[in-house]
């Protein structure tokens, strides 16, 4: 069988229609997890099958696709997913955040602010923010339906009681439009504020768990906290990017030698490269 044997963007049209229905429902009820009939994809569960299905359902031939993992365009899984869509959809690809119409991401939101008309597709491993408080799906669905979120707050209370602060660095839970508690996927909490009132459409796909959820443009997204322990989108203090000198971006720590030497560089490779280019121009 050759690649031409597959439909545009791999999935057959009936499957895409099913996905789009789920996406529409998700957009209509921001933060609500819509069950969908996830397909087996040619990459393993947990490697972005949900995001890939959502992207496949959104793509049209005119789209320009950007794929990042850990903020970077050239991490292996990002490369793999981008080449998958180049092969099965033939769409243009880019590394420039501003030029992309669809961006599939794992674990980051780009530093460059998104604009209206863009779609950001998140890969989600565990869509249920209550999962580790209550393992049962039947029970967590009832908890969401009844807005029974006391237990979630207890978890944060326990963090402060034990550690003096909310000890969650990523996948930091948010409340959407004052209603549903949502897992923003394992983005660092540094990225949480970017979810709020974003002009872009944000879609979340969890393939193995068969759930899709969404944040329509300009949706209110608040990170859970206490009045006297407000949410802070922190990152390593006092470090700038060693490559581009950016002070306000999220940084990866890179170990440079076996003597404990380290440096900090932007996790968003496009943002970093663009800044370097601009500086040398």
């Amino acid at each position: 069988m050759t690649d031409q044997a597959y439909n545009f963007a791999y999935l057959d049209e009936a499957t895409k229609r099913m996905l789009r229905r789920a996406l529409l429902k998700a957009v209509a009820i921001p933060g609500y997890q819509v069950p969908f009939s996830s397909r087996e994809m040619p990459m393993p569960y947990g490697w972005g099958t949900g995001g890939v299905q959502v992207t496949a359902a959104c793509l049209v031939p005119e789209d320009t696709l950007k794929v990042i993992d850990q903020g970077a365009d050239d991490t292996t899984n990002a490369v793999s997913i981008r080449s998958f869509f180049e092969k099965v959809a033939g769409v243009a690809t880019t590394e420039a955040t501003a030029e992309a119409s669809v961006i599939q991401t794992r674990h980051r939101i780009p530093e460059t602010p998104l604009h209206a008309g863009q779609i950001l597709v998140f890969q989600v491993p565990i869509p249920e923010p209550l999962r580790f408080l209550e393992p049962r799906e039947t029970e967590t669905r009832v908890m969401h339906a009844l807005e029974d979120y006391g237990l979630m707050q207890v978890r944060l209370y326990e963090d402060i009681a034990r550690h003096g602060e909310i000890a969650r660095a990523y996948a930091y839970p948010v409340k959407v439009e004052g209603r549903y508690v949502m897992d923003p996927s394992p983005i660092p909490k540094f990225d949480n504020p970017k979810l709020n009132m974003s002009p872009a459409l944000q879609l979340f796909g969890a393939g193995r768990e068969c759930r899709i959820y969404a944040l329509p443009p300009f949706t209110r997204v608040e990170s859970l906290d206490f009045e006297d322990y407000p949410f802070t989108p922190s990152k390593a203090a006092g470090q700038d990017c060693a490559i581009c000198g950016a002070s306000g971006s999220y940084l990866d720590e890179v170990i440079t030698d076996d003597a404990g030497g380290r440096m900090f560089v932007c996790s968003d490779t496009d943002y970093c490269a663009t800044r370097v280019q601009e500086a040398s121009a």
């Binding site: 006391g150 707050q153 326990e158 206490f226």
Partner: peptide, 24 residues
């Protein structure tokens, strides 16, 4: 799996209390 204080505070948080100091 939750501290004694958290156990007592849970009902307060379940009905909307969001001030850590008050709950505690």
């Amino acid at each position: 799996g939750v501290s004694a204080g958290g156990n007592v505070g849970e009902r307060l948080m379940a009905v909307g209390a969001r001030h850590y100091g008050d709950i505690r």
